[in-house]
Simulated assay, not measured.
Amino acid sequence: MAADFSRPGSLYGAVDLGARKQALEAQARRETAGPAGAASAVIETTSATFNADVVERSLNVPVIVEATVPRAEQVQQFSGTMEKLAAEAGGAWLLARVDVEANPELAQALRMRAVPTVYLAFQGQLMPLFEGPLPEAQLRQALAQVFEQLGIELLAPPEGEGPAEPPIDPDLLAAEQAIEKGDLDAAAAAYERLLARNPGDEDAKIGLAGVGLVRRTQHLDEAGVLRRAAEDPADVDLQIQAADLQMLSGAVDEAFERLVGVVRRTSGADRDKARVHLLGLFDALPSDDPSVTKGRRNLANALF
């Protein structure tokens, strides 16, 4: 069976639509650092260059291979964390990233089952490490165990560099742990507790909206829904389901525009249903996300 590149390799990645914010921040940092800084953080490899970029380099230094789909928002936070850890390593190991959507033959050769899949190349040998995007703490632990076996010490960030991160809220932590276990009910309850204490908490708002999105789509036939929605643009419920599926697969702008189109074409209860659902999808992303800003502007134009 071919690997499914449209969805992340774990439920954690599917819910974490807030990763778009971290991805935008990481992109800004890379642009500030310039071409040299970006090049030092990650090797962008392809089927044609994989042997030279990964296998041959691994004869001198370990190479961690991140096989992923860079355009998928659900994995971009993980990719940013990988770059961060590679930079901290100070050359003790290298990070190579391959876009498996653009290099399907390499994905097949790697026998991928999920996006992302992470491999270790060492002394010319390639071995799988884990599948699916991990939270930073688990990623650090996984890599530390690998490099401990190789006798390589991972570098921690220099002491005193940057502000200390505040401790994670216990309910936010409980929600993340529940998501990792696939327990959507427990995750939703934890996010709701946090919002009850702090109604303005954006992480909880994004997380709860993401849980709702996964709940609504987990039993849908994606191809079937999208096909029927294209055949029957007047069916508001179908358009809403299609927008949810597009949102989850990373086609955020397309999902927003689909519902804006429904608002333009309809009136009364149908129009209000599409409008309210679109506002709910906005909640699944940071309020300053460019797609949300664009979507709100288009919605206002459609309404007035």
Rank of each mutant, 00 (worst) to 15 (best):
R271W: 02
T45M: 13
A142C: 09
A284Q: 04
P116T: 02
D270Y: 01
D289S: 11
A48S: 11
Q218D: 02
A274C: 09
A190H: 02
A137L: 04
Q141Y: 05
E66N: 15
G160R: 06
G182E: 08
I240P: 04
Q241V: 01
P166W: 12
N51R: 15
A234P: 01
L173N: 12
Q22C: 01
Q108H: 05
S267V: 08
S267H: 11
P8N: 09
G224Y: 01
L155R: 15
L226N: 06
A284M: 08
S79H: 05
A269V: 15
T46Y: 09
L11W: 03
I206W: 03
A196R: 06
E180A: 15
M127V: 13
L213M: 12
R20W: 13
R227N: 13
D288A: 03
P158Q: 13
A223C: 00
P233K: 05
R271Y: 01
A52D: 12
L154E: 04
L213W: 12
A187K: 06
G182T: 12
V63N: 02
A92P: 02
L134Q: 14
V214I: 14
V54F: 00
L11I: 15
S6W: 07
G207L: 07
I43D: 09
P163K: 07
N51I: 06
F5L: 15
A2W: 01
K205R: 15
A36H: 10
V236H: 09
G9N: 03
V100K: 00
F78A: 04
P233E: 04
E25F: 15
L134K: 15
G200L: 07
E180Y: 00
V263T: 06
Q76D: 06
